[in-house]
Design a protein around this nucleic acid. Structure first.
Length: 984
RNA sequence: GGGGCCAUGGCUCAAUGGGAGAGCGCUCGGCUUGCACCCGAGAUGUCCGGGUUCGAAUCCCGGUGGUUCCA
């Protein structure tokens, strides 16, 4: 199970804009599609809550209780007293795409910059598993760490929520509002406009642009709690918009106060709720309590808009709030919810966003969608969206972190697919539909279509394989249980299925129950609890908290390696870690980790290994050897050092120097890696994508996606291209630019790599432009020579190339040359003629072998005429046992064959001596075999004479033994044996 | 980084631990004016290195390569 996201949802249980979508805890509505949800019958003007003059009576649900039953003033408590029908109709049936566009345009017209959705994988934010709210990409802008050239922005942000305490994933498909993937519409003000405009914009968009019935709307404001004053300003502003005062509710910290975390910006929020009807199920009521109205978790009053007024800042945990000089606005509105309200649906799944996907699922499985039985289809529809977007943002199914979340989503969808009767790969087809539907709004989907579909296919076929294997295991275990009379599948088995076969426990449970068995969930929970480092767990694991805290406190380390020679620099020690704990100083003999404010040391990342070198302080009195430099968290460089002289204290100024030769080699290898990447694309095809890379001083290793081994010709072509570019001696250049611009310019971005707002674009040669944070040569010629040394497979669809550059490559070539020369000398020829010579030698060896055998057979059979005469008559069979000089297996066999043929009917034994050991071969003709003669049995007995063993078939057998001197006796025994056999 | 499976002629594949085969392809010959078909003949060999065994393509260990799963 995935753990709670560290820091992801701190302090915003329900308060943030985010809560307008998946964090919902609504229970399944189980409602049939409302009668009135027929957009085509709907009048465009003021929709009537009570039957109004404009609405014909027949458009009103039969369940309506009449005008008086409509709660004009939604009470917080108690809940509306009576059931009110779901009678409203919508002025227009805007599609979700139209709503999205209307929203963005609305704010664009009001001075907002339309900003593209950021990746689902948050850039430079290891605290967050996935982008889960609209403001994520603006986090640093709100805190002031980052500046943008606009003060107002609007986005439709891709979001994923599939984890957390309540494990939302289990609900998805069974409720009206839970999703793994959703879009968050947002408008943001960075110290520009504040409450008045934010409220006015929100109200205008909801009531005018969307045309939602004001009668059904209510708003909430912060009531003041915990020493923070109530938000009277917001209250008055809403009232000014025309919201009746009695429908502005004051809610507490839990609902209407937002904070990014324990520290940082925070402020009250204010929400718009939409009344759906009192016939909607409510948990509170189901539990015998009363519905909490706008404060209730149920869907009667649906939160559709959340305004966050960032006006305070908290410097330290539990410290008093300080007003921000320039308060900001962060708005969130879940597109799926808004669409459902606008389209008059009671479930997000009824909107066009999902129905268009469900139609595809329905078509594939040949079943019609029904609200009640459609859970599996809803699961597939929802999960296919998440999968499409996650994969296109570079997440790949795996066993941990983000990849594990994706895998669970995909496997859950595939399992539901099998429940719908989809026995062949189907998931990629649904995902393909998602790309069709969403590709206009999110072009990245189209761009990565082939890849996304491939990943889906792969995951599904993989899962279907383990699915079957796992089912087999369950069968076996259940069979065991049957024997032993047990009733419960053990926790170990569930754990094994979970860990090894990717079976969620609930699937195991379902299968076991189908066959009348129970499962030991308690035992499983115990095992999963101690899952340890091998268990699939959440993100942040492995990133020790120490580093997280360091980077939060100290900010990123400045890397000096880009400028000039970049191997020396001065910095001050900001932190010292010993055995993972912070200390204030380190002295001679200590092995510690140093964090500097600035460093020329490259911390291992992007495949490039960390630098080594030394750090010197106190005018040379203190020296530490840097054995490695790592980057445990984005932005933080940690030097692993051995203090060899003196002491180092936090705050000391130090001189840092990188091992120059080593760095040079690394640079050459890194630049060569870029050229190799490009050359592979040209030679093997555009599908070649980097799948991993190691840039070390002594070699480079490059993994890439490609489905068959590269041929020798292709590799040579790659070498030629790369070496050609090296000889061009092009000036390498690095530009720092915005991510968007870099992508536009066609720079190769690593799939799934996290990039910040600004990126480094490295052009080693005009042919190769890549986003890269590593260190590179000045001119391509600095690489020297490029030589591929191996090509091999790593995983399915992934090949690996290992190559050398510069002196390393030269040495390699030289070694090969030496080897060649040595071989040539041994064969007394020149390297040039070596292969010819080997060929000739092989041929000659073969010829000689053949001749030897020929001669031997000839020599032996020459005297075999006489041998035939030695045959004796035993039990009416001719029996011959004789000894020959030659003792090669195949020669003896040839002779035995010949003798057997010539004897016509009988048994032949030939003995020979080889290296002092006896060999005996017995052959019998078919007719005597039919009479009960068994060569195998005979030879076994004879072998005993020479102290050996043997065996074979009835018509041909051989044996051997150490006592060659006893051969005559052994052979003589044949006659007796045949006599006995014949008599029997 | 670890595990599974696989490796036999140019290709696709056979061969209970007991004599390395088939089909296709290839070469040559015959038939044919010629080509194709057809007929006949032939060449090409168990990935490498150890071990077990009387005997290994077969079993074991190591290596190499392929493939696949896991990390």
């Amino acid at each position: 199970m995935v753990r709670d996201l560290p820091g992801a949802q701190h302090g915003r249980a329900r308060g943030g804009p985010g809560s307008a979508a998946a964090a919902d805890t609504a229970v399944a509505t189980g409602c049939p599609p409302p009668d009135s949800a027929r957009p085509d019958t709907v009048q465009p003007s003021r929709p009537a809550v009570r039957p109004s003059p404009g609405t014909p009576p027949d458009k009103v649900s039969h369940r309506a209780r009449g005008p008086s039953s409509y709660p004009m003033h939604p009470p917080r408590t108690p809940a509306p007293p009576r059931v009110v029908a779901y009678t409203h109709t919508m002025p227009s049936a805007l599609t979700a795409s139209q709503i999205r566009e209307a929203f963005l345009k609305f704010f664009e017209e009001r001075g907002h910059r339309r900003v593209a959705s950021s990746s689902l994988v948050p850039a430079n934010d290891p605290t967050l598993l996935f982008t889960n709210a609209g403001m994520v990409q603006f986090k640093d802008v709100f805190t002031g760490r980052e500046k943008r050239d606009y003060k107002r922005a609007t986005t439709s942000q891709k979001c994923v929520r599939a984890g957390g305490k309540h494990n939302d994933l289990d609900n998805v498909g069974y409720t009206a509002r839970h999703h793994t993937f959703f879009e968050m519409l947002g408008n943001f003000s960075f110290g520009d406009y504040f409450k008045p405009d934010a409220i006015a914009y929100g109200w205008e968009f909801v009531t005018k642009t969307l045309g939602l019935d004001t009668q059904r709307l209510a708003v909430t404001v912060f009531n003041g709690e915990g020493g923070i004053p109530w938000d009277e300003e917001a209250f008055e502003l809403w009232a000014k918009q025309g919201v009746p005062r009695e429908r502005i509710y004051k809610l507490g910290l839990k609902d209407n106060f937002w904070a990014m975390g324990d520290t940082g910006p925070c402020g009250p929020c204010s929400e718009i709720h939409y009344f759906q009807g009192n016939d909607i199920a409510c948990v509170e009521e189901a539990a015998g309590k009363t519905c909490q109205g706008v404060a209730c978790d149920c869907d009667r009053w649906l939160e559709i808009w959340n305004l966050v007024f960032m006006q305070f800042e908290r410097k330290e945990k539990d410290a008093p709030l300080i007003p921000l000089p320039k308060p900001s606005i962060d708005t969130g509105a879940g597109l799926e919810r808004i669409a459902s309200v606008v389209q008059g649906k009671r479930s997000n799944y009824e909107t066009d966003l999902f129905q268009n996907i469900i139609a595809k699922v329905s078509e594939l499985c040949g079943k019609t969608y029904t609200q009640e039985g459609g859970a599996s289809m809803r699961v597939v529809a929802d999960h296919s969206r998440a999968a499409a977007f996650l994969i296109s943002d570079g997440v790949q199914p795996s066993n941990e972190g983000r990849g594990y979340v994706l895998r669970r989503i995909m496997r859950r969808a595939i399992r539901h697919g099998t429940q719908l009767g989809l026995d062949e790969l189907f998931f990629f087809k649904v995902v393909d539909r998602v790309i069709d539907l969403m590709g206009d709004a999110f072009p990245e989907l189209r761009e990565s279509r082939t890849f996304v579909l491939e990943v889906c296919r792969h995951e599904e076929s993989g899962f279907r394989q383990t699915l079957n294997r796992g089912l087999k295991l369950i069968d076996e275990e259940l069979a065991k249980l049957q024997k032993s009379g047990g009733k419960q599948l053990s926790g170990e088995v569930i754990f094994l299925l979970h860990g090894t076969y990717g079976f969620p426990w609930d699937l195991t449970q379902i299968i076991a129950r189908e066959r009348g068995y129970d499962v030991d969930l308690e035992g499983f929970k115990v095992l999963i609890g101690q899952g340890g480092p091998t268990g699939p767990i959440g993100p942040g694991q492995g990133i020790a908290d120490v580093y997280m805290k360091l980077v939060e406190r100290l900010g990123p380390t400045q890397f000096l390696g880009y400028e000039g020679e970049g191997h020396e620099g001065e910095g001050s020690i900001r932190a010292i870690l010993k055995d993972g704990a912070e200390v204030t100083q380190a002295s001679q003999g200590d092995k510690v980790e140093l964090v500097l404010d600035r460093t020329p040391f490259y911390g291992e990342s992007g495949g490039q290994v960390g630098d080594t070198g030394r750090v010197v302080g106190h005018g040379g009195k203190s020296v530490a050897q840097v054995e490695d430099a790592q980057r445990p968290v984005a932005g933080l460089v940690v030097h692993t050092v051995n203090v060899t002289e003196g002491t180092f204290k936090v705050g000391d100024m130090v001189q840092a120097g990188v091992n120059v030769e080593r760095r040079k080699s690394i640079r050459a290898n890194h630049s060569a890696t870029h050229l190799l990447h490009k050359a592979l694309k040209l030679v093997l095809g555009e599908h070649v994508k980097q799948a991993g890379s190691v840039v070390a001083p002594d070699y480079l290793r490059f993994d890439f996606s490609h489905f068959s081994p590269a041929t020798q010709e292709q590799l040579e072509k790659v070498e030629d291209l790369v070496n050609g570019w090296i000889r061009d001696n092009a000036a390498a250049e690095t530009r720092v630019m915005k991510l968007e611009d870099a992508k536009k310019s066609g720079a190769v971005a690593m799939f799934g790599e996290k990039y910040g707002e600004t990126v480094r674009v490295v052009t080693v040669h005009p042919e190769s432009t890549e986003l890269c944070g590593g260190t590179h040569v000045r001119r391509s010629g600095d690489i020297g020579l490029f030589k591929v040394t191996s090509e091999s497979g790593v995983a399915s669809g992934v090949r690996r190339i290992v190559a050398l550059t510069g002196i390393g490559a030269l040495q390699y070539v030289r070694e090969q040359e030496h080897e060649l020369r040595r071989a040539a000398e041994l064969l007394k020829t020149s390297p040039k003629d070596l292969s010819k010579r080997v060929e000739a030698t092989q041929k000659r060896v073969k010829e000689l072998e053949r001749k030897v055998e020929e001669v031997a057979v000839k020599a032996q059979t020459a005297g075999s005429k006489d041998l035939l005469e030695q045959a004796r008559e035993v039990n009416g069979m001719k029996v011959l046992a004789t000894q020959v000089d030659s003792a090669d297996d195949s020669v003896l066999r040839g002779m035995a064959d010949q003798l057997r043929d010539r004897i016509r009917s009988g048994v032949v034994a030939i003995g020979g001596e080889k290296d002092g050991r006896a060999i005996i071969l017995v052959a019998a003709t078919k007719d005597v075999v039919a009479r009960g003669i068994n060569a195998g049995a005979l030879v076994r007995e004879m072998a005993k004479e020479v102290g050996g063993k043997g065996g074979g078939k009835a018509d041909m057998a051989q044996a051997g033994g150490p006592d060659a001197a006893k051969l005559p006796a052994a052979l003589e025994k044949l006659y007796e044996l045949v006599k006995g056999a014949g008599a029997a």
